[in-house]
Design a protein around this nucleic acid. Structure first.
Lengths: 207, 207, 207, 207
DNA sequence: GATGAATGAGTATTCATTCAT
DNA sequence: AATGAATGAATACTCATTCAT
């Protein structure tokens, strides 16, 4: 899953696409290890086994590739989540499932964690991009009478902050499924689900 | 309020202490304006009216002063908050008051906002440092039967994440008292206060 | 006028010649727009609708094509001038006519202006190349007793310097027919025509 | 005269001034040898025996030092010329003397030649700077009835072009006093002095 | 202690040129 | 002949850190 995401997508295409993919994978690797601020062009080209000048045959600036990577990873993550959730209708269950899957997905590709977390500084409306699905689930939950919030950027930002915080903690202290469950409870509570109900919903959804 | 924080504390002490304090104040100023990453040694010494070389008579590296500043500002903020809350006994009210005061304090001293926000990368357990008071208030609320959470680093991190998110939003989009109120509601909900009750408690506490 | 100079000359020839001509035309275009120093190989191949690598099937280095372009444009300009002057016998009139026509020609094809002006660094004896005709006219004027100069490289260089200066001024400050007239007067004066006579000769020749 | 112009002026001053002067001298040296376009920062610092970074303690950009050098050399040359001409009242004689001295001065410091010639591209009104004296002499000659020209930028540019051309020729082909004399004659002729008179005036002025 | 001149490793970016396809 | 991907040397500029005065 990690290491060749773009290369896999480009295998079979022309050389240009494959080299471009190699650079993007290298960028994911480097940013994952050192963060966006510290990622250097030479790191990326070295990781891709290319000369530094080759970079500029594919991207105009450092910013461009970082932006590209952040967007692409966000979109990819978003799509993987959506794929897992077809067939779930209940708003709270959708939110819990999505939150849980998202955290697990990220923790399995720590490279992506750094990219998504840092990337929020590089994208115009970054959380919204990654959490496109969230807004829909929230609205659905409100219509179903399960949530009691305004569905606006502030609420989204608050939910995202909770998720980010849980990821960072596990990145630093090690994975802990219990943390992720508690995160889901917190998210439901924040959305206006009664405290007890939040706990039982999570238990039911995640087993 | 800001600008002479360290200098005030050092007035009356020896010259060495006063120069050191001048550098720390300059660092607060510079970091507040440009962020930690972009703050240069020469900015600090210039702001302190010193030659750049003088810096190294007081600090070994750039990292050292940044760390020092982050810690000291965090402690100071924490103490100011505590001072404002003597006499409040009700756990939820304490939490709401503290949260609200903290956000207001930060938004009035954007210098400190940058330091606290950026500084979390420079501190070992940054939230815990600044939010030492929070743990006590949380425990109190739990004992009073008002909160339903485990008082541990994860819960604190989650609350801190909500606060940080609300600050960042207002820093970017402009101050909005309504946002701070909704933040307080969210915090109470997260701590296990029933959704409606959370709203009324905040209204009562903040008028 | 410009744009297909070399291509026209090569039409009907083999493919190799036509591609070569396309590159030369592209070079004229690019150098005219950006100057010799700033002209890039990729600009030229792009303008010619070719891949950058193709360039090196026709020219060894960038310098080579620049040199080639400078020489060829100089020759072409020279020939066009000669063609316009058949039938004029009087030395001073020939010089005035040639000078005036040359300046007008250049100002109408700024591409060529850049090439001729910059090109003087790329050519061995650039003025002599372009101003081959001048030597003959000067000699003729001297024989007719109208000029009082030595016809040698220095005198030619001096005349060329006057012309170049007038072109640059108009390139920078906008076309001004009066400037060109004064230039012609200056040229005649330099060649030893009495000051007043120089003026009347120019008036007569240029109307 | 060449090699330590700025250093001489700065000897006895503080270290900062001396290093700055060393960089300026190094710039003169490098530009003199390679031209402004090709002059590199590292060339200059190497020539001055300094680390490349030191450059930026004294000048913000490459352009800045080139501009500085061009201006300073122009001013210096201008002043040396003026100093030589006190006591000469006759306009034509002043022009001849100045022109002759200028060319000789430049040819003795070929470094300066490149700087002045290239520098005309780097200065806003470059010839006017260097040839400040010329305008005054021209006006004087016109008032004395010796010259018959408009004293405006075009005329100045034309005279300067003649001078530049003569310098370039001697730079390329070797010094030749005869060339400089003929240059002076040409300048007088251009300014409206009768051809024969021009020759005799030059002979008288330059022996 | 204070100064500030000097340092030099580090980095993004350009572009003529090469060469395998 | 044509392609265009890959190359890598070159170069301006930054800034934390050192150290002689």
């Amino acid at each position: 899953m990690s290491g060749h995401f773009f290369a896999d997508a480009a295998s079979g295409l022309g050389k240009r696409e494959r080299t471009r993919a190699a650079l993007l994978d290298a960028a994911v690797d480097v940013v994952g290890r050192k963060g966006m601020e510290a990622a250097k062009i030479t790191d990326m080209t070295a990781a891709a086994g290319l000369a530094n000048g080759t970079f500029y045959n594919y991207f105009q600036t450092k910013e461009e590739i970082l932006h590209r990577v952040a967007v692409d990873v966000a979109v990819e993550v978003s799509e993987r989540l959506n794929a897992q959730m077809s067939g779930i209708d209940d708003g709270p269950t959708r939110v819990v499932t999505a939150t849980h899957s998202f955290v697990e997905l990220i923790l399995e590709s720590p490279d992506w964690a750094n990219i998504l977390l840092d990337g929020w500084d590089y994208l115009p409306n970054p959380p919204l991009q990654t959490f496109r699905y969230l807004r829909a689930d929230l609205s659905q939950g409100v219509e179903q009478g399960a949530f009691d919030v305004e569905v606006d950027p502030f609420t989204i930002a608050q939910v995202v902050a909770l998720i980010g915080s849980a990821i960072r903690l596990q990145l630093a202290a090690g994975r802990d499924p219990e943390i992720t469950k508690r995160l889901c409870v917190n998210v439901l509570r924040l959305l206006g689900v009664a405290p007890r109900k939040a706990g039982s919903t999570v238990s039911k959804a995640l087993g």
